[in-house]
Simulated assay, not measured.
Amino acid sequence: MCTYCGCESISVIGRFMAEHTEIINAAGELRRACEGGDPSQVAAAADRVEGLLHPHTRSEEVGLFAVMRRQEEFTDHIDSLCAEHTTLDAQLAAIRGADPGDPALVDRFLHDLRHHIDREDNGLFPASAIALEGPDWEEVDDVTPPPVA
C-alpha cells in the first residue's frame, strides 16, 4: 500500500486500498485451503475471494478507471489493469476447477494478484491524486458503486 503521497486519504482510494488488504487476506485463506486439500474448503475460499474481488474490480472500472480513462496518458495503463482483472477472474475459476486447488495455479494467482495491486496502489492511485481535480472526484464518488457489506 502506498503510504508516501497521502492518496489513501481520498475516500474512494482509501476504500480501494482497504479492499485490497481484504482480498489479499482472503487469498491467503485460499492458499491454506488448497494446501489442506479439501475440495469443499477450496471452493468456499475461492467463493470468498470472488465475493470480494468482483465487486471491487467493478467499482474500480466504472468509477475511477472510467474517469481517468478520459486522459489519454492513462488509457493504456488502465486498459492493462482491466485486462489483469479478467486474467485474475480466469485464474480464480481455474483454481476452483483444479483438483483440489492446484498449488501452482494458486501461486500464479497470488503472484499476479499482488503485482496487480502494487500497480494500482503505487502507480495509478498516486497518479490519480495528482491528475484528477475536485469535479472529477465528485464524479468518481457519484458513479462508484457502494462497497459490498
Rank of each mutant, 00 (worst) to 15 (best):
L64K: 04
T75A: 15
P145E: 08
V67R: 13
V49Q: 03
A66Y: 02
A98S: 15
D136V: 03
E133L: 07
A98R: 06
V140Q: 03
A93W: 04
L52T: 01
G123C: 04
A43M: 07
D76N: 13
V140A: 06
H115N: 04
L81T: 01
L110Q: 14
L124H: 00
D121A: 11
E35V: 12
L124V: 11
D112Q: 12
W137K: 06
D112N: 13
C34R: 04
Q71H: 14
L124W: 00
G36H: 05
G134R: 10
P103G: 06
H77Q: 15
D102V: 08
V106G: 01
A131L: 10
P145S: 08
D79V: 15
D141E: 14
D76T: 15
D118H: 14
E35G: 07
D112M: 08
N25C: 04
G101V: 03
G101I: 02
Q41C: 02
P145Y: 07
A46P: 02
A90R: 15
E61Q: 10
V42I: 00
A94Q: 15
E73N: 13
R48F: 01
D142F: 07
W137Y: 09
R108K: 12
M68Y: 02
L132M: 05
A90S: 13
P100A: 11
I24Q: 05
D89Q: 13
S40Y: 03
F125T: 05
E72P: 13
S128T: 04
E133F: 08
P100H: 08
G28K: 04
G37F: 07
L110Y: 04
T86F: 03
W137E: 05
E138N: 10
I117N: 01
E138R: 14
E61F: 01
D99Q: 12
Q91P: 10
A33C: 01
A46C: 09
A98P: 08
S59A: 15
A90L: 12
D76G: 15
C82Q: 14
A94V: 01
E60M: 08
G97E: 13
F65C: 04
N122E: 05
L53D: 03
L110N: 13
L30N: 07
V49A: 03
E139R: 13
S40R: 10
A27C: 08
N25F: 07
H54K: 14
R48I: 00
G101Q: 03
P145A: 09
L88H: 05
H111G: 09
E35M: 09
P146E: 15
A94K: 11
S40V: 04
I23Q: 00
R114K: 14
D102N: 15
V67L: 12
M68V: 02
R48Y: 04
I23L: 09
A98G: 13
L52S: 00
F65I: 07
G123L: 03
T57L: 11
A131R: 11
D38S: 08
L30M: 10
D136S: 08
E61P: 00
H77E: 14
R69N: 12
C34Y: 01
H111K: 08
